[in-house]
Design a protein around this nucleic acid. Structure first.
Lengths: 186, 186
DNA sequence: GTCTATACTAGGATAGAC
DNA sequence: GTCTATCCTAGTATAGAC
């Protein structure tokens, strides 16, 4: 069945696109650069993504949401103590951002963005993350009314530490943020 | 004397460039867009910045460093209690980022950036900020060895909250971060 | 599913008139 | 100091062969 092979090829392609978009942002990625990075001609890229760059970006955001569902929000709502689940989230962060050396897709794609299908997906990802983390915090004793702001504070610290780590070329800021969050959670 | 008039005109131009670069990042800004935004032809832009887009970006970063020196790092090292100086910094943040609705130049310019004169300037800005804030924290009782990480944590929270506020279209995250930092400082 | 070829637009940059 | 005109490259996108 050809769709099976096509799907995994497209999956691999999307993984490469993900890396390009997270580094350069939406406006910073060109079809030519994608062609060079993937080894596929422009036409082949349009064959897989007839909608061009925007469809590529949407696929990348959908992929990121899927990864988050499997590695972040799923585990946050899964089995184990809430403390252990929060630490699992932090491990996933360390993996997703390669210890602080890789940029965040959400932050990069937000640059220069007006309102479009891509930003809607980014917002959805952020909300899914906030909801799952907030629920975990409630189990840890955070009052329900304060859970969402507390979750936002944690996510914000991760995102901010990432900027500092990359801006200063020093991953210790990212590592320290993860450690601080883990320590405060007990 | 013509240089006086030219300087202020270039100042005004750089202010417009600053707004474009902070929103779209380096790669996302085009000379055509700058021309449209400023009303100046491409040639006129090259007259003021013979080095093209990179020289424009450098001027913008230099301007941001100057603004920080006057509104952030200067006051942080200036007169008054360290608590009052930290609150002055937070007020400056609120102004610089328009209550959480405007993006950070550093974060935007970092997207897609390799190592170049512009990123060097961004790193310098970040280090100047860290140094001044760290010194202020020492005066507030933070042990010297912990001052720089503590300063980085505060800056990271501001940057991260900015991403959340913009990504979710909800400035409350930025406001909450400023409030939390102020409260913790006593 | 991939390619070459092509069209057309937008991007960066310069020359030279006013 | 600003403009029009120009150049060349890179950008997005499509057509059609294999």
């Amino acid at each position: 069945m050809s769709t099976g092979g096509s799907a995994s090829l497209k999956e691999a392609l999307t993984a490469q696109l993900y890396q390009l978009f997270r580094v350069h942002g939406f406006e910073g990625v060109s079809i030519g650069a994608i062609s060079a990075a993937t080894g596929l001609s422009r036409s082949s890229l349009y064959h897989h993504f007839p909608g061009g760059k925007e469809e590529m970006a949407e696929a990348v955001v959908a992929r990121a949401r899927g990864w988050f569902a499997g590695h972040v929000t799923g585990p946050l709502r899964g089995a184990g103590t809430p403390q252990a689940r929060l630490k699992a989230m932090l491990s996933a962060m360390d993996e997703a951002f390669a210890g602080g050396s890789e940029p965040c897709l959400v932050a990069s794609m937000l640059v220069g963005a007006g309102s479009n299908p891509v930003t809607d997906g980014l917002r959805a990802l952020l909300n899914e993350w906030l909801d799952a983390l907030g629920a975990c915090l409630v189990e840890m004793g955070t009052p329900k009314a304060k859970a969402r702001p507390a979750a936002a504070a944690i996510i914000g610290r991760i995102e901010g530490a990432l900027i500092l780590s990359r801006g200063l070329g020093d991953r210790s800021h990212f590592k320290a943020a993860l450690n601080d969050i883990a320590r405060e959670a007990g």
